[in-house]
């Protein structure tokens, strides 16, 4: 993938992660366990599309090669996408859907909490607005984790299996320090180095209340969403998401 400066890559990571998570949620239209839950999942998805737009518009301006936010979403290949691996994983059963959403929300919450205080006014504004939305997303997914974890024997066992299944991908929540030190020092990304710790505290509290066992800290591996090294799932997502604008470049609605 093309390498950009650290700030642009951060914007791409935030924008792409929100976009891919939203696309996964949209797959559940017509398939959620209850009508109320379906509307709720789509509301979260719509919030994330809005956030992706804000981050990617800023990224497009910084990249400054004539591409718009739409171009970044619909015309990049998977090796140029910087989203977290976690969000591209298949939805699985409802337990996996919720486990993914919860781990993403808790990371997102810690990220936006920091970025709300950014010295970059535009980042601070987008993060502050997004933080309100994500505060609710986290509350909702945490409630589900507790409800299922501390529910029946079967729901407990399936919620635990879901957490265990996706936990591995949380290794990406601790970003390599070389990318962050400068951004943190400049005040663009305050308290960047404590994101992982704050994320970890949230997860610990919720899993404990949910009577679930927190897996061992996830080890790094050769994949890295930030560097465009994705699982095979992302290609399928992009194929579906990008088909129309690629096949009909002038399409409008």
């Amino acid at each position: 993938m093309t390498r950009y400066d650290d700030l642009t890559e951060l914007l791409l990571q935030l924008g792409d992660s929100a976009m891919v998570q939203a696309q996964r949620l949209c797959e559940l239209v017509g398939g959620a366990p209850a009508l109320e839950e379906e509307v709720a999942l789509m509301n979260v998805g719509l919030d994330l599309v809005g956030q992706a737009r804000n981050w990617l518009e800023y990224a497009a301006e910084r990249i400054n090669d004539g591409r718009t936010a739409d171009d970044l979403v619909f015309l990049r290949d998977s090796s140029d996408y910087c989203n977290l691996l976690l969000v591209e994983l298949p939805n699985g059963d409802f337990g996996v859907t919720i486990a993914k959403q919860f781990l993403f929300d808790s990371w997102h919450y810690a990220m936006l909490q920091s970025l709300s205080g950014s010295s970059d006014e535009r980042i601070a504004a987008v993060a502050t607005k997004s933080f309100k939305e994500v505060t609710y997303h986290l509350r909702r997914s945490s409630e589900w984790v507790k409800r299922l974890g501390d529910g029946t024997d079967e729901s407990h066992q399936r919620m635990q299996a879901a957490i265990d299944q996706v936990w591995h991908y949380s290794f990406e929540f601790s970003m390599p320090t070389e990318h962050l030190a400068a951004l943190e020092a400049e005040g663009v990304f305050p308290a960047a180095s404590t994101v992982h710790e704050r994320w970890s505290e949230t997860v610990k509290a919720v899993l404990s209340e949910a009577t679930l066992t927190q897996p061992e800290a996830a080890a790094r591996n050769y994949l890295s969403g930030r560097e465009g090294l994705h699982t095979e799932s992302l290609g399928y997502i992009l194929a579906e998401m990008q088909f129309l604008p690629r096949a009909y470049p002038d399409a409008n609605w």
Partner: peptide, 9 residues
């Protein structure tokens, strides 16, 4: 949960 669902709908 009813409060959350009501908020969504």
């Amino acid at each position: 949960m009813a409060i959350e669902n009501a908020r969504e709908l």
